[in-house]
Amino acid sequence: MRITCPFCGERELGEFTYLGDAKPQRPAADAGEDAVYDYVYLRDNIAGVMSEHWYHGGGCRAWLKVTRNTLTHEISAVEAAAGAGAAKVGA
């Protein structure tokens, strides 16, 4: 499998580490235990197109959101995580 990193270009699978379902969003601090429980433990396991987190540890260390068909391994989109990339200017 090959993943096109938005920063590094097309690279081989061995450079990446898989995390899993990218859908769950970390709940706000006051969301309560049930919401956090869902976030920590409930994962979709889709036979088909799935949004996943991958880490380009063998390259630029960016976290990526990869849209992948788990049946065919076809990758239809790769985007960098919101905080990936160079330091913000100012802020």
Binding site: R26, Y55, W63, G83, A84
Partner: peptide, 22 residues
């Protein structure tokens, strides 16, 4: 060492992208 770096990058890039930190 490597896993903590990966975890911290996840926190920085995915969980808390609003923080200005490298």
């Amino acid at each position: 060492a490597g896993l903590v770096m990966q975890h911290l990058e996840f926190c920085r890039q995915v969980l808390f992208p609003e923080l200005d930190v490298q």
